[in-house]
Amino acid sequence: MTHPALDIGLTHYLLVTTTLVAAGIATILTKRNAIGILIGVELVLNAAAINLVAYNHFAWSAGKGGPAIEGVMFTAFIIVLAAAEAAVALAIVLNYYNNFSSVDVDQADSLSG
């Protein structure tokens, strides 16, 4: 039996992505800069993407005449969406900046109940 440190498996990847997602959440929660929040979101997205690929690699059984592809496909779409999201988000940030002359999200509380 090999040592678990040598036997890189799904668990190792999941540990890394968990750390990553925690960093992303922490970033989102602690940054007042709208772009910082965007960066946090990117971290979370990346963690999810790595998870999908890792699962695709380790856990998806090859039942259809070849190695699995679904996780990879999903990740590809994520990357596309992340790009789109970043574009929209930046547009919003710019708009916001134009209105408030700041990127401090805490100033945007006009929805306060």
């Binding site: 989102i28 929660l29 929040i37 945007a108 509380d109 306060s112």
Partner: peptide
């Protein structure tokens, strides 16, 4: 009570979420 949670601040919402 719920109204007071509606700070309108996005980070607060995120905090609640997570």
């Amino acid at each position: 009570i719920l109204r007071s949670t509606q700070t309108g601040r996005v980070r607060a919402y995120v905090l609640f979420l997570f």
